[in-house]
């Protein structure tokens, strides 16, 4: 089990190193930010001097090695635009994105999993058809579109919720729904399949032959068995949530790292973009490790297989 986790951690580190490298070079394909930083009417000499001061006149590969060296010393560098530490700028935005992602996860798990269980247990009936329509809606509306619809309905038309910004729980509701809808549908579909699969197994008939009601058999046995595939999806979905956050934060003017990433790409503030990517990879790795630990907690076959 420990060896397995260590192996997974190693793989994840290699993968995030790869992502970081790709981002480093792709960002620089579009040129350097010197021109965006110099005052209007600057001479060619002034531009060259600034470019030299910022180190952008060095060969790309040298810049890359120097970035890695800084990273190894846990030095994330300074923002080119804001002239302050990147670590502080990103850290300031993280709580907002965590709040948003947590809200979305509550929506996704809280609705998706019960909906999936209900669709499986009451298959072939009215309940399944209604829920299937609901799930399809969540799945087929693009995030920016559902975000705008929500703003128009609850923010502009009904005036129940604020249309943008991060100011208390009421402002979280719409962004969390917009971000969580797709993940909710994924959870509902996966849970439905997992529960259906388990319901057809002999141990369910055996539990019922022992006198358990279908509901009791589901609660005592089926849910835990069905949780194993759902946990896998959950870990992957956190990655999708963070990707979706970029769009939702832009639509709702939510001051998280997604919004920061978009602003920084436009300003060619390379180090901030790289740090956001680094943070997202670390979260993604953490979630997958958490999933591996969850398997062991759920399934004695993994836990006891040393």
């Amino acid at each position: 089990m420990i060896r397995h986790l260590a192996g997974r951690l190693g793989q994840a580190l290699v993968a995030s190193f790869g992502v970081l490298t790709i981002v480093f070079f792709v960002m620089r394909l579009s040129g350097d930010p010197t021109l965006l930083l110099v005052p209007e009417g600057a001479t060619a000499e002034q531009i060259a001097a600034l470019r030299h001061a910022l180190g952008f006149d060095r060969p790309l590969f040298v810049q890359y090695l120097s970035y890695l060296a800084d990273l190894a010393r846990l030095d994330l560098g300074e923002s080119l635009v804001q002239r302050s530490g990147v670590a502080g700028i990103v850290a300031e935005r993280i709580p907002y994105t965590v709040e948003l992602a947590a809200g979305a996860l509550v929506v996704a798990l809280g609705i998706g999993i019960p909906a999936g269980v209900a669709m499986a247990v009451w298959r072939g009936g009215m309940v399944e058809r209604l829920l299937a329509g609901f799930v399809l809606t969540g799945q087929s509306l693009p995030t920016f579109w559902s975000g705008i619809l929500l703003i128009l309905l609850f923010g502009v038309h009904l005036r129940w919720l604020p249309t943008s910004g991060a100011d208390g729980l009421s402002s979280l509701v719409m962004p969390a729904i917009a971000l969580g809808a797709l993940t909710m549908s994924t959870f509902a579909r996966m849970t439905r399949i997992a529960v259906l699969d388990e319901l057809s197994r002999d141990y369910v008939s055996a539990a019922r032959a022992r006198g358990l009601s279908l509901g009791a058999a589901v609660a005592r046995h089926v849910l835990r068995n069905a949780a194993i595939p759902v946990v896998t999806i959950a870990a992957l979905e956190v990655g999708n949530l963070l990707a979706g956050a970029v769009i939702v934060e832009t639509v709702f003017a939510w001051p998280g790292i997604g919004q920061l990433a978009i602003q920084s790409i436009a300003a060619r503030d390379f180090l901030i973009v790289q740090t956001v990517v680094l943070f997202v990879s670390v979260v993604y790795i953490g979630m997958n490790l958490l999933a591996d630990i969850a398997y062991a907690v759920i399934d004695p076959r993994i836990r006891l297989d040393r």
Binding site: R201, D202, Y203, A206, A209, G211, L212, H221
Partner: peptide, 22 residues
């Protein structure tokens, strides 16, 4: 439900599949 398991029980062909693995 009060009959099953109390007055009348059943066992199955694949004993390992008839038990919840977890």
């Amino acid at each position: 439900r009060a009959v099953r398991g109390q007055l009348m029980s059943m066992i199955f062909q694949e004993p390992q599949a008839a038990l919840d693995p977890l």
